[in-house]
Design a binder for these strands. Sequence first.
RNA 1: GCCCUCGUAGCUCAGUGGAUAGAGCGUUGGCCUCCGGAGCCAAAAGCAAGAGUUCGAGUCUCUUCGAGGGUACCA
Length: 608
Amino acid sequence: MFEKEQEIIAEKIRAFCAEKDIPLGELKWMPIPFSGEWGISTSFFATAAAEAKAGKSKGMPVPVRAQEIAEAVKNGISVLPGISRGEAVKGYLNLYFSTAEVALKVVESALSDGIRFGAGHPKNERVMVEYAQPNTHHSFHIGHYRNTILGESLARIVQFAGFETIRASYPGDIGLGVITVLWAYEKFYKGQEPADIHERGQWLLKIYAEATNRLAEKENETPEEKAQREAYDAERREMYRKWDAGDEYVRKLWLDTREWSLDELRDILHMMDVKIDVWFFESEVDEPSKKIVDELIVRGIASDERGNGGPVIVKIDEKLGLAKEKYRVAVILRSDGTTLYLTKDLALAEQKFDEFHVDRSIYVVDNRQSLHFQQAFKILELWGFKQAEKCYHLAYGFVSLPEGAMSARKGRVALFKEVYDESIARVLATIAEKNPSMPENERVGVAQKIGMGALAYSMLSVDNNKDMIFDVNEALSFDGHTGPYIQNAVVRANSILKKAVESGKWKLESQEPATYGYPLSTHEIELIEQMSRFPNVVQQAANEYRPLVVAAYAYDLATAFHSFYHAVPVLQTDDESVKSARLRLVAAAKQVMTNALYLLGISAPDVM
RNA sequence: GCCCUCGUAGCUCAGUGGAUAGAGCGUUGGCCUCCGGAGCCAAAAGCAAGAGUUCGAGUCUCUUCGAGGGUACCA
């Protein structure tokens, strides 16, 4: 928030150093730690080291010389805008803000910018974020949830930072897994589907698990069992062939059952407040991707080995002249001429850039597919697709359970809907215990916000590249480093403001900006300091594609608020001008916390 | 074999090359007839090992050890 001031000060320092013939290095600004006060700091170690290298140090140790420079600069620059005093400590130049001025600026801009406080300037760049890619004919589990909340949070952050943002979903609606469900449904369960959207989605998953067991080779199987299994498999492959040939019956069966999965997916996205702009389906890039393969063969980039019963491959390492294996050999068309996941991603990339004119394309996909994307992007590059360098795979660690990896076949899956229902139940129990006066008709709405807040925060407060073990009891904890902790800070702020309004003497909109000339407590300074960080936090998170940065910040901000709340009286203050200033601070803090939570896909209720 | 992640407190995780490595859970102790105790204040406890680069390394490079994932027709 203080870029202008920093730049003016930096300019003064540069002028001073130029005059004194000091080879000033880059000026990096940091907050001052341990001060209890408030300001910015920069060090002169790099400058002192540069002098030493140039032989100008006269044998003086770098830290000592850095301190000498810091003192010289401190004495050499006179009055600075918004700075009350300066000091030179251990090679650092610390500049302390005039608290009244900065407090006013931070609080008033948070109040006047409102839900836009912290937003970045337009970047004139269009970014597509692809996430929410569950396979159809399968139910949405907690791993899909991590993907979706990560992608949604990233999309919100990038958009808020100033990029035009397109949200894309890419469900896997075809492949052997899908056909397996289709086959089993048709053969054993036709017409038996439950009516409820979620029950029906989960029912498809049960069919899938059962079918894969039927088709799996067992130990010590009898000749009859073996024959049965092979007959089943032949039926399944025949169904895949018919799908590929456009058989009307199979296609209709496929579309009907696919719709059941999409019904469930859309409902979950609605629960998460996710609005997808563009839907891509694997089945729709199937044909276009075959054309790309043809072109790659013609251009000599791919080798067609179908003549010898082999597939179409790209020897990526060989094409790049790499001695060590890195990108390896990629199969881009099966020997029977059908496409693979990789094939379809080539066509999808082309579509994203050519049809939607995006400048950058981010793929939120788990890290087990890192090689897949390295191969896809390299093949695009070999093909001459310039935007290949604008494709970025945002890998995240996969989610497993305390009992081990999730497995539909073993029936070991944490379904999103079940976790969601459990979260509602737990919040309702907590409300009954802690806030029994809450009217019954408000409880479910509040429980949804708190339950989802806990779940979202538990996912986003772990860095995306880390694998994660999903423990329901930890994810649905409401104490400590959690979403509800932050939501509770908003609720407390809201409670103060509501009481102020109810007193009839105060109204946010009709108040003049307050003055902060009274001695601010360290809690107020810390809170305002945290609020002022928000715009930079947004930019950092967007640049690094890391919602975690916002998640960590939101917690720090809430902690500052809770401490303030506990230690500093607001409504109990006798001095009317101090009370007014603190009420505006509370309103501003509530706004910043709300904005930060929004970027995490979390909304805060007024009461909880 | 090769490639990619990762290793920080008993557990789960933060930590722009910069000053005294921070949280939560758990453990222990405190919180006044005071705006909501889903809270606040405090205590104990830690960078896998070794070299290197640097004025300065949890952070960058290399080696070793350990964990997970990937590695030609699944997605």
